[in-house]
């Protein structure tokens, strides 16, 4: 074992994520466990911080999709080790989110990045995959007790399906309890407003801030 303070270890974890280094992420996570450092803190102040940086680098076009995905794998390598050691009660799950790509559309790279950024910042994300009918978004959100539905669409011909989700929530009297956020190439803030969605964001990094804002309004 090296002689590392808790802060140094957190920094090491963050760097391992940014450097796409799964092995180091796993090794330092084990070290955190052995030293009985708080596991939740190691994730929150270490791994997740690294993912935040990776998300920023993606937004700034320093990193691209392959790099961001590799960072996520490094993060997960650490989380897998640390998670069983989180003291109960400590892990506050921020809010459950149901995410998917609307029916007719199989473009799922953007959705997957959004999901990955959300789960690395403490949201519990249920992924419905791609080509998902509006009804399934609503049904699954109810089943899962989700507070937010996030819908992705890359095609002008399918984005209307998002509207359908909002309408269904209204019909079922769920509009106050379940927030809707939308995104993807042709989607804009204007479109989100038009269909009565609660939020829009242009990229995966910003989607985390958006989800946090929406979760806060639920409380």
């Amino acid at each position: 074992m090296t002689d590392m303070t808790k802060e140094e270890l957190h920094r090491g974890l963050a760097d391992a994520v940014v450097n796409m280094d799964e092995a180091t992420s796993a090794r330092l996570s084990e070290e955190a466990v052995e030293r009985r450092y708080d596991a939740f803190e190691a994730i929150d102040h270490g791994l997740a911080k690294g993912m935040e940086t990776a998300g920023r680098l993606f937004e700034e076009e320093e990193y691209f999709v392959p790099e961001l995905l590799m960072c996520a794998d490094a993060l997960n390598a650490g989380v897998d080790i640390l998670k069983p050691h989180i003291k109960r009660g400590k892990q506050d799950i921020r809010c459950k989110i149901v995410i998917g790509v609307i029916s007719g559309d199989t473009h799922d790279i953007g959705k997957n990045l959004v999901k990955l950024m959300l789960s690395s910042s403490g949201f519990e994300v249920v992924d419905l995959g791609r080509d998902v009918p509006p009804q399934s978004f609503v049904d699954r959100a109810v089943e899962e007790g989700a507070g937010i539905i996030m819908i992705s669409s890359l095609m002008t011909t399918t984005m209307e399906g998002m509207w359908e989700v909002v309408r269904m929530l209204e019909e079922r009297g769920l509009r106050d309890r379940i927030k809707v956020a939308v995104g993807g190439g042709p989607v804009s803030q204007g479109f989100a407003d038009k269909i009565g969605a609660d939020g829009y964001s242009p990229n995966a990094n910003h989607a985390v801030r958006l989800a946090a804002e929406l979760a806060a309004t639920l409380a």
Binding site: E67, D73, I109
Partner: peptide, 8 residues
């Protein structure tokens, strides 16, 4: 997703 990672 796996494919894009495997490019690296």
């Amino acid at each position: 997703m796996t494919f894009l990672k495997e490019l690296r």
